[in-house]
């Protein structure tokens, strides 16, 4: 190793810079991960991606705006290979903002084994998502259906009276996934590897 005469500084100055820059590097690596909760906060504030908030308690005083009527459509999607049947019991309802409304979705497990599913809600337009509150929903917890079992799963929601005036139709969507890491997910994955051989 050849040693070159250093210019106007020695190794200490380099060390200081390395320490500073490494701190930035580690900080930015952490920042990448911090983007995850930041993004979720950002979504819940702006309704980005139609993400809805968590469960809220039914308010003691309801502030119903009977002058307006909003059509709420329901759609159901099964993610790849989810071997269930899944659809809304009603296609749409008309509601007044502020009024709690109860509807339900139907699901049936078409296989011979128990499957744990997780439903992911989404609201369109995204802007309406922040005004869409659920007091009861099958999406808050995982849903287990035994072989051949069927179920009507309730949702109770309230649309905030503050929802912008130009929103008069919105859509509540659920997509059912096999719960990652659950037995069914593992057995299906195992099954597939087995079949490939």
């Amino acid at each position: 190793m050849s040693v070159h005469p250093k210019q106007n500084t020695g190794g200490d100055a380099n060390k200081k810079i390395i320490v500073w820059l490494m701190a930035i590097v580690i900080g930015m690596f952490g920042f990448g991960f911090a983007l995850v909760p930041l993004y979720n906060v950002f979504c819940s504030v702006t309704g980005l991606n139609g993400k809805t908030g968590g469960q809220i308690a039914l308010p003691a005083v309801l502030n119903v705006d009977t002058s307006r009527e909003i059509t709420v459509e329901f759609v159901a999607t099964l993610n790849e290979n989810m071997p269930w049947s899944f659809y809304p019991d009603v296609r749409s309802v008309k509601v007044h903002p502020g009024e709690p409304t109860r509807i339900s979705f139907y699901a049936k497990n078409n296989t011979n084994e128990k499957i744990i599913g997780q439903a992911i809600p989404s609201v369109a337009p995204g802007l309406a998502a922040t005004y869409f509150h659920k007091t009861e929903c099958f999406c808050f917890t995982e849903q287990t259906l035994q072989a051949g079992e069927e179920k009507h799963m309730p949702v109770v929601f309230i649309i905030d009276s503050d929802i912008p005036k130009d929103v008069n139709v919105l859509t509540l969507s659920y997509t059912f996934f096999i719960k990652p890491g659950s037995e069914a997910a593992v057995s299906l994955a195992h099954n597939s590897k087995h079949q490939e051989l």
């Binding site: 099964l78 790849e80 290979n81 071997p83 096999i178 299906l188 994955a189 597939s192 590897k193 490939e196």
Partner: peptide, 15 residues
């Protein structure tokens, strides 16, 4: 054919 094979391109055709 009905239920597909998870993790591969083989889809569930039941629906």
């Amino acid at each position: 054919v009905l239920h597909g094979v998870t993790g591969t391109a083989m889809q569930a055709f039941a629906g």
